[in-house]
């Protein structure tokens, strides 16, 4: 409630976000103290293995994760287009206030464009609805706006395709339609949850190019959630690496790829097969398995798989965020116990 001040170029500041859900087998701490921030006009890549809490983080920002309000902790501070600064976690999750932000100021696109559209409504119907939820304009005007947007996402014969049902479009076309629907209200922030994972490689490149271009055209920020470091390298300016619900390293894309600090980031980078690799040369996967979500390690979550784990230290407590260079932070005891007293409540 206090401390909501943010630098003027900051759009979204996620501070020590925690959430989870109760299953019969136990409580899953899906996001466990994630902190990162998004600047205006910037693309931030959020990387991590499946199950590390990337998607839940994005959905929690929009308050559509379906987790109970009790499980929420931390702050998600967002600068609205009016200039007003709001903690999104404070808003009732189905209230009017957050619904005004959803779609209009923060939009989201999903991994599976097939299932992300209702199969029994035309895409036009669903896009027009998105417009009319936030702008009081007539159906005809909304339709024109929708066709316009479909053209901008390079949908060929947009006037005809607007009346198509999702199953009549190809995967790439559906993802274009999805992007059109998300951007039709000109949001400030686009949460892209693995937008290209379900697509083939050529389409993938087109879609990424499209998102990059629209980002520049519309002057928005993008949070690109992916498990693919290649996607990050191609689109992002800043990268946040997540492991088991925590952001373990955050840096601009160049420093991260050139000088990764956290052992997990290094392991991830080492696991990418390189071009020109000789046949038969072994791949280097990250060793071990992601621990069960019901039984998360105490201390640094990565110590069970970490090649440089220090016995007696790493399994005792969680290292804080240490700044190693300007804008490059890492949470690992190898680099220090954390910047002084800042956000050490956990």
């Amino acid at each position: 409630m206090t401390d909501q001040a943010m630098p003027a170029d900051m759009l979204l500041d996620v501070r020590d976000l925690r959430t989870g859900f109760a299953l019969r087998e136990g409580y899953v701490r899906a996001v466990d103290g994630a902190s990162f921030h998004v600047r205006r006009g910037e693309t931030i890549g959020v990387v991590g293995e499946s199950g590390c809490g990337k998607s839940i983080t994005a959905r929690t920002i929009l308050r559509i994760a379906g987790t109970s309000d009790d499980s929420l902790a931390g702050k998600v501070i967002f600068r609205r287009s009016s200039g007003e600064v709001t903690d999104l976690l404070e808003l009732p999750h189905s209230g009017r206030e957050i619904r005004r932000i959803r779609g209009a100021e923060i939009a989201m696109i999903f991994q599976e464009p097939m299932t992300a559209f209702s199969p029994v409504h035309t895409i036009g119907n669903q896009i027009i609805e998105a417009i009319r939820l936030h702008q009081s304009i007539s159906k005809e005007e909304a339709r024109t706006a929708a066709v316009d947007m479909l053209r901008r996402v390079e949908m060929s014969s947009a006037e005809k395709r607007i009346d198509a049902y999702p199953h009549q479009l190809s995967g790439g076309m559906r993802q274009r339609a999805m992007i059109a629907m998300a951007l039709v209200c000109r949001p400030q922030l686009l949460l892209a949850d693995e937008p290209t994972t379900a697509l083939d490689v050529t389409t993938q490149a087109q879609i990424l190019g499209l998102i990059r271009q629209l980002k520049d055209d519309l002057g928005m920020s993008v949070m690109m959630i992916t498990h693919d470091l290649g996607v990050v390298a191609e689109t992002a300016q800043t990268v946040a690496v997540m492991y088991l619900g925590k952001v373990v390293e955050m840096a601009d894309v160049k420093s991260l790829f050139r000088d990764p600090k956290h052992p997990y980031t290094r392991a991830l980078l080492a696991s990418i097969p390189k071009l020109g690799r000789r046949a038969g040369e072994p791949l280097h996967p990250v060793k071990g398995m992601v621990p069960s979500p019901f039984n998360r390690p105490i201390g640094c979550p990565f110590h069970t798989r970490c090649p440089s784990a220090m016995p007696g230290i790493c399994e005792k407590s969680m290292p804080g965020k240490t700044t190693v260079a300007g804008g490059h932070t890492v949470s690992c005891f190898l680099f220090g116990e954390g910047d002084k007293a800042e956000e050490q409540s956990a």
Partner: peptide, 20 residues
């Protein structure tokens, strides 16, 4: 913050807790 278990005892780290 309710989740202060990070600083728990080493025994608790064993997967011996009831649920697990």
């Amino acid at each position: 913050m309710t989740t202060t278990s990070e600083t728990g005892t080493p025994e608790a780290f064993q997967p011996a807790d009831n649920g697990a």
